[in-house]
Design a protein around this nucleic acid. Structure first.
Length: 576
RNA sequence: GCGCCCGUAGCUCAACCGGACAGAGCAGUGGGUUUCUAACCCACCGGCUGCAGGUUCGAGUCCUGCCGGGCGCGCCA
């Protein structure tokens, strides 16, 4: 068996089972919701469907059902309110079950082992080498890293892969440009900006070059690269990769992002020929205008192009090879691709081609898509483009955020022990949380004012709430201790307790739907309630029994915030 | 032209895959600190959920058609 999992008594399931007995329906078919207005109760059963079946008015059904639920026990109160049956868990009982469990779960609170034995491959970040990381790359990086942690928290084995864009015709251009105008000294001191300038220049001049000489040079260099020989092209390309990774790592470490494998597209170079052979042998390909394609017309899609008329491979070929290789190596339960929504068609095609190879796991290839990042332009908005210099550099954004936080800290908390570390945690946390706050599908228009706002529903707000709770625990004359706690004194804790109890469900749902924003929204709600508690109740200075009870609650809220923020990739400093 | 996605308060978003009176934050106005961090809290202001039909006991949520925006559509990634 796996490790011991800290179990929390699950009142929700108890209610579900009682309802099942009372109605004679399987628990899975019963909808139990959380009332919008929490004063109504912690859980609610809408009686409409049952009422229709029984041809009785819903309020009557609710009223007649209530007496049949006496086996729920004294800890769960119920009340028929109109067409709803509302359940409220006794606060003292909830506190007694929940708070000691949170405490002993530690870092693993909200997690579990329901993913054990299954492997999730998470393909995320995946920038192109020799180009600066822009805020456009942030989304894939932080969403992917969060999904990875959310699943790992529940016992899934996760494999994080940074699928670098390090192959293709563009690197022929890159090499050609460097050979023409490159400066070895600048390549050493200032690699990415230098390479990027060269690339932009090459693009411009290639466009103006009627003779086609530049394009021919680029093609020649890429052919040399693709030949597989240890030649000048390969040596240069390898150097580009190394220099790029050195730059990227600086930012990844700032973001606290790690990969299990950094494998660019070039990693699958040797698998390309066998992949094409396999597709041809399976009879799913055909020739069209000199290119090798998979015709997907009957699936309502444009063809998937595997090989150009010139014989070079494409993106789709490399992704097919990668998918096959990953299935073989990891035998994944799901292969997740955290890639922008502009590539939806590509991933639909990828699945369709895998399906035509007769692979039953084709549907386990999942595109975890997200909306595009746009930037304000002279008129309206436009897509971010590194090539046209219309991109905000990620490192600049992070640096400005950290600088701003550092200034605020010096003013508000001049006695802070390690201002620099906290400035980094909060500055980076603001940027990361901003990208995880909203549903993935939403397009984003980049706005400096918005990202660098630290008030309201922001990362710093969550961190601040956490720091204040830490402060109470730090200043208290005693440490929280479940054995010395009178849980009955927490009856006035409002909704904070039931909200804490929902944390595992928020983690599970965020993971199941590959949607970190579900956890973000949950944490904002939790923080608002924690701040409400802080406003209405003193902890230190109350008589000892009351203080002890409240300290344990504060500790539970603090732990939940810390673990939740950690899953999102946001640090939780104890002071700020 | 065809396909996919998105339209909720002035702005940015929630609304538990169909349920109770559509909720937060920002911006605006007015309040709150001899007491655990004011990056906080409270109050006010603000809505034909793009439009028109349909399904349903019940629709912001599902279906159809329009309108507006984004993205994609054979040798880029």
């Amino acid at each position: 068996m796996g490790e011991l999992v800290v179990a929390v008594r699950d009142f929700r399931t108890e209610i579900l089972q009682a309802l099942s007995r009372a109605t004679g329906r399987p628990p899975a078919s019963i909808v139990l919701e959380t009332p919008r207005d929490r004063a109504m109760g912690d859980h609610a059963f809408p009686c409409f469907a049952l009422a229709k079946e029984r041809r009785e008015p819903p309020p009557k059904v609710a009223a007649s059902l209530a007496p049949l639920l006496s086996d729920l026990g004294p800890a769960i109160g119920l009340r028929a309110t109109g067409p709803y049956l509302n359940f409220t868990v006794d606060r003292a009982t909830l506190a007694r079950e929940l708070l000691p469990a949170i405490r002993s779960a530690g870092e693993r609170w909200g997690g579990g082992q329901d993913g054990s034995g299954r492997c999730a491959v998470v393909d995320f970040s995946s920038p192109n080498i020799a180009k600066p990381l822009s805020v456009g790359h942030l989304r894939s990086t932080v969403i992917g890293a969060a999904v990875y942690r959310l699943l790992a928290h529940r016992g899934f084995r996760c494999v994080g892969i940074n699928h670098l864009g390090d192959w293709g015709a563009q690197y022929g251009r890159m090499i050609a440009a460097f050979k023409l105008w490159g400066d070895p000294a600048r390549l050493e001191s200032d690699p990415i900006p230098h390479l990027h300038e060269l690339y932009v220049r090459f693009h411009e001049e290639e466009g103006k070059d009627a003779s086609g000489k530049l394009s021919a040079q680029a093609r020649t260099w890429f052919k040399a690269l693709e030949s597989g020989e240890e030649n000048e092209a390969r040596a240069l390309w390898r150097r580009l990769t190394d220099l790029s990774l050195r730059e990227f790592d600086r930012i990844y470490s700032l973001l606290g992002v790690r990969f299990d494998f950094v494998r660019g597209e070039s990693h699958y170079e040797k698998d390309l020929a066998p992949t094409i052979e396999r597709l041809v042998a399976a009879g799913v390909t055909k020739r069209s205008e000199g290119a090798l394609i998979v015709d997907l017309e009957d699936a309502g899609m444009p063809p998937c192009i595997l090989q150009t008329a010139e014989g070079t491979t494409l993106y789709a070929t490399r992704d097919l090879a990668a998918a096959l290789q990953r299935k073989k190596e990891f035998d994944f339960w799901k292969a997740l691709y955290v890639v922008g929504a502009d590539q939806r068609l590509h991933f639909r095609q990828l699945r369709e081609v895998l399906k035509r190879l007769g692979l039953p796991w084709a549907e386990d290839v999942v595109h975890v898509d997200f909306g595009l990042m746009q930037i304000r332009a002279e008129e309206g908005v436009e897509k971010m483009s590194t090539r046209r210099g219309k991109a905000v550099h990620l490192e600049e954004l992070l640096r400005r955020s950290i600088d701003l936080v550092r200034g605020i800290l010096r003013e508000k908390n001049p006695d802070l022990a390690d201002t620099e570390a906290v400035a980094r945690a909060v500055g980076v946390g603001a940027v990361v949380f901003h990208d995880l706050k909203n549903a993935r599908v939403k397009d984003v228009v980049f706005d400096w004012k918005e990202v660098l706002n630290f008030d309201g529903e922001t990362g710093p707000y969550l961190q601040y709430t956490h720091a204040r709770l830490c402060s109470i625990l730090r200043k208290a004359p005693v440490a929280p201790d479940p054995a010395k706690t009178d849980f009955g004194l927490l009856a006035d804790a409002g909704d904070l307790l039931p909200v804490l109890a929902e944390f595992p469900r928020a983690v599970a749902e965020a993971g199941d739907r590959y949607e970190p924003s579900i956890l973000s929204t949950y944490l904002l709600d939790l923080a608002q309630r924690a701040n409400g508690f802080y406003r209405d109740h003193r902890v230190i200075g109350e008589d000892e029994a009351l203080m002890r009870a409240r300290l344990l609650l504060v500790e539970g809220a603090r732990a939940t915030l810390r673990v939740g923020l950690g899953l999102l990739g946001v640090a939780a400093p104890e002071e700020m």
